[in-house]
């Protein structure tokens, strides 16, 4: 299982690297889609069918929005000459990545090995959840019963985002 997921994640990394370096923006968007759809397969392998369903819908919508934006504007990548500022940016990026990698190495040391989850928190959510919530799907039970206010907040964020998109796209900008 770990091997299969590793192979898919390597595929995702390659897709992400191509998306970052592609010279055509439309192919960059499609290569970004590789990452999202591979994530669906990962979720299925990790026994998370709810996540896979939501992710495949969300990824399709994201891809449609991005392709619509690209087709409505320019497909050319902005290539400038590789001047001092670009060098400084690249060097800063490499330093930040090195520091973060060291930090992640330190932070991942106390993690349990893959596949040996101890379920400290989830015991209360799993044992007797069907009687408490009346839902055979444990994820639904957590989402809509134990953590209902969390879902309410999520709905608020969604409404705010929709209002924001409508506001941004409707008002005519200053010339």
């Amino acid at each position: 299982m770990e091997l299969a997921i590793s192979v898919i994640v390597i595929f995702m990394i390659l897709g992400a690297i191509y998306a970052i370096h592609a010279s055509d923006i439309l192919s960059a968007v499609i290569a970004g889609g590789i990452v999202g759809y591979s994530l669906v397969i990962c979720f299925l392998l990790l026994k998370a069918p709810d996540l896979a369903i939501v992710q495949i819908v969300v990824e399709t919508i994201t891809l449609i929005i991005m392709v619509a934006v690209v087709l409505d504007s320019s497909r050319k990548e902005a290539y400038g000459k590789f001047d001092t500022q670009a060098w400084v940016t690249a060097a800063t990026a490499v330093v930040i990545l090195a520091i973060l990698f060291w930090f992640l190495k330190e932070a991942s040391a106390p993690l349990a090995p893959f596949g040996e989850n101890t379920m400290r928190m989830a015991d209360a959510y799993v044992n007797g959840a069907v009687d408490k919530t009346g839902s055979v799907n444990l994820v639904t039970g957590v989402l809509f019963d134990f953590r209902g206010y969390d879902t309410l907040g999520e709905a608020t964020v969604l409404v705010t985002a929709v209002l924001g998109v409508l506001t941004i796209l409707r008002i005519r900008g200053r010339k």
């Binding site: 994201t62 994820v139 985002a161």
Partner: peptide
């Protein structure tokens, strides 16, 4: 499988869609 992270990620995916749409 632990249902708690899955519920968290389910919330995060939908919020990610909202932020991406607003960014675009």
């Amino acid at each position: 499988v632990d249902p708690l992270p899955q519920a968290m990620v389910l919330t995060a995916i939908v919020i990610g869609l909202a932020t991406t749409a607003m960014l675009m």
